[in-house]
Amino acid sequence: MKKEYTLEELLHKAASYCSISEHCISEVEDKLNAWCIECDDKVKIINRLIDEDFINEKRYCAYFVKDKFRFNKWGKVKISYALKQKGLSDELINSALQTIDEGEYDEMLAALLKTKLTGLKYEFEYEKQGKLFRFAQSRGFESNVINRVMRNIPQISK
C-alpha cells in the first residue's frame, strides 16, 4: 500500500528538493506530478515555496545561464531555447543572458572552434568554413558572433 502524505510533509519534501539545487516552477510542477499530488495542493505548495524563496525564477535563470555557458559551453541561442522550454519569461531570460561577458563569450567560441579545427577533415577551404559554422550554430552561437570570431582566427580566416 502506498503511503499517504499530509500537505505539510509534501511541502517539506518539495522544499528539500528545492534546497538541493535551483529549480524553476515547471521543474517543481513536474516533480509534484510524479508524486501524484492533486492540483489544488500543487498550487498551495508552489506558492508557499515561492513565498519562502525556495523557488526564485530570476535566481534560477542566472545560475542556469552561468552553468550552461561555463560548463556546457553553450551559446545564447541554445541557452535561451532551453529556458523557454522551462516556461520562463523572455524578460527573465534576456536579463540573465546580459550577464555573459561579450569578451569571454567570443573567447569561448574561438577556443571551441580551434579545438574543432584540429580534428576536422575537409577538402576545400569553404568546406572547412561551413563545417565550423554549423558546429558553432549547433552549440547555440549567433551567426553574427560566429562570423566575427571566425574572421579573427588566423587558421580559419585564410
Rank of each mutant, 00 (worst) to 15 (best):
L97Y: 05
V65T: 03
D30Y: 13
L112W: 03
N72A: 09
K84I: 09
E22S: 14
E123R: 08
Y122Q: 05
K128F: 04
N33K: 09
G140F: 05
L49F: 03
C39M: 11
Y81E: 14
I93E: 00
R134N: 10
A96H: 02
G119T: 15
S143I: 09
K68S: 02
K78Y: 09
S16Y: 11
Y17K: 07
I153F: 01
N47W: 02
V77F: 00
A82L: 12
D51F: 14
H12G: 06
G130E: 14
S26Y: 02
A62V: 10
G87Y: 05
I20S: 10
T115A: 12
I46M: 03
K116N: 09
F69Q: 03
T99R: 07
L97W: 01
L120Q: 06
K121E: 13
E57I: 05
I100Y: 00
G140I: 09
E127S: 12
E104K: 13
I156Q: 00
Y122T: 04
A82G: 10
L132T: 02
K2S: 14
F54C: 04
I79T: 00
L88E: 01
D67S: 05
S138E: 11
W35Q: 04
E91A: 11
F135E: 08
T6Y: 08
L117A: 05
A136V: 09
N33C: 12
L109D: 02
E104Y: 06
S138C: 08
K116W: 01
Y5L: 11
R59P: 03
K42M: 13
G130T: 15
K78P: 01
C39K: 15
V149C: 04
I46W: 01
G130D: 14
D40P: 04
C24H: 00
S89G: 06
D40N: 12
A111C: 07
S143M: 06
D30S: 15
K84P: 06
L92E: 06
L83Y: 05
D40H: 08
Y122K: 04
Q98V: 10
L120H: 05
N94A: 07
C24G: 01
T99A: 12
F133E: 00
I156T: 09
K66W: 06
E102N: 12
R59A: 13
I146K: 02
